[in-house]
Amino acid sequence: MGAGEAKRPLAVRMGASALRGFIALVLFILVLLLILRGLAAWREGEAMAPAGTSYFATPAGRVAARVAGPADGIPVVLVHGTAAWSGFWSEVADHLAQRGWRVIAIDLPPFGWSDRDPSARYDRVTQAERLSAILGVLGKPAVVVGHSFGAGAVTELGLRHPEQVRGLVLVDAALGELDPKTEAPVAKVMRAEPVAQLATSAIVTNPNALEPFLRSLIERKEQAHRWIPVLREPMLRAGSTSAYAAWLPNLFTKQDGALSRRSASVGAIKVPVALIWGDADTVTPLPQGKRIEALTRARSLTILPGVGHIPHIEDPAAFQAALDQSLKTVTKEKE
């Protein structure tokens, strides 16, 4: 310590030391995040869509899908949640196809094998219009099943295009805060591209973080491991981290002009609704499901015991039975 520094008051010296320590910590974190972003780019390549992938043309780009079941069956469209894709519905799709439904499990952009939008139009309204374009190709009303964040676009579709929807099945739906007074601060932060890129590469497309992240969403932790290869498969496409980062602000936004963010609009929905919910869901807890049940005058709310936020991978048999009953409920004419 120099003589001049020794003469400075102790509190000042301690404050300067703390500041240097804080700056060093920030620099360390930034370097670590930049390394993670570089590793994410290194992992991504020219991964190919699975054999049998179909594509639907929409005004906002092609949407990839897995199609199964008899061509004359009632269409059931399956819409996944955050960072997932149609592969997460594989067991459900096989189950429904065997029961005579025409199953269309889609990859909601930018996830899966769908086209990434150069203009990053991933808001709930645009996603609903993508779904509407797909239903237009199908040519007849469909039952639409939406899980978690995907349920927002599905509900928006039901509100904007009820003539295309035979019924909705919402699974642990993440509709977010209804009637928000202000925008979420984190949404504003995530609109800064460097922040979103670093957050995505650290958490979403980082293979070392993916399993802990998935385990945090579910109650039956042992089910996470076998689904990690499925979840990662489309993340190996070139540009995945950048595309997911462009989408990320939509996960947190509260104000994007969507009807499904207003309780009065949700309460006026015209299509039949059924709900399926895990009673151990900590992401969208059961009270949220009960509020949606009341608002939509849902025909049923099936509660799955000991199940968290992703019922179709946690307890496939119980979920498939619940889905069978929910599909019957929303397609049955009211007496």
Rank of each mutant, 00 (worst) to 15 (best):
I276A: 06
I74W: 00
G278I: 04
Q223V: 13
G308A: 09
F28Q: 05
A322G: 08
H95L: 05
G158I: 09
E5Y: 08
E46S: 12
L159F: 04
E333I: 14
R13M: 12
W85Q: 13
A47Y: 06
K140L: 09
G61W: 04
A24I: 10
M190T: 11
E193I: 10
A11I: 11
K334A: 15
L32I: 09
A128L: 01
V144T: 04
A280Y: 08
W101R: 02
T53L: 02
A184C: 12
G289E: 02
L96S: 00
A40N: 04
P162T: 07
L217F: 09
P194S: 06
S260R: 02
R116C: 03
V103A: 03
A93K: 01
G81A: 12
V125C: 05
I29L: 14
G289T: 04
S114L: 07
P162H: 02
A16V: 15
P59I: 15
A16L: 15
V330E: 01
F319K: 09
G112L: 02
M48G: 02
L178Y: 03
W42V: 13
V143H: 04
A93V: 06
A128R: 06
I313C: 03
H147K: 08
A18M: 11
H309F: 11
E129H: 13
A192E: 01
R262C: 05
L33G: 14
G4A: 11
R160L: 11
A49Q: 00
R215Y: 03
G289F: 09
K328C: 06
S265F: 03
S260K: 00
S114Q: 02
G257Y: 06
A202S: 10
D179C: 13
A49P: 12
P285A: 08
P287C: 07
F149T: 01
A16G: 11
P305F: 07
A174W: 07
V283E: 13
L25P: 03
A57K: 14
G176Y: 09
L96G: 02
T205P: 01
D279P: 00
G73T: 11
V143T: 07
P70A: 13
G278D: 00
G4E: 10
R116T: 12
K221N: 03
V154E: 09
R102T: 03
P185T: 14
R121N: 01
L30C: 12
I74L: 15
A120P: 00
S260I: 09
A245I: 10
A184S: 15
A321V: 03
E335M: 00
D72I: 11
L78Y: 08
M190R: 10
E219Y: 07
L96T: 04
Y244N: 00
P285L: 10
G176V: 09
G239A: 11
V283D: 06
F149M: 12
V204W: 04
T200E: 11
L25A: 14
A224E: 03
I29S: 09
V144M: 09
D123A: 03
V169Q: 04
K181T: 15
P110T: 11
K181G: 08
G306K: 08
A151Y: 06
F252I: 04
L323K: 01
T205C: 08
Q288Y: 12
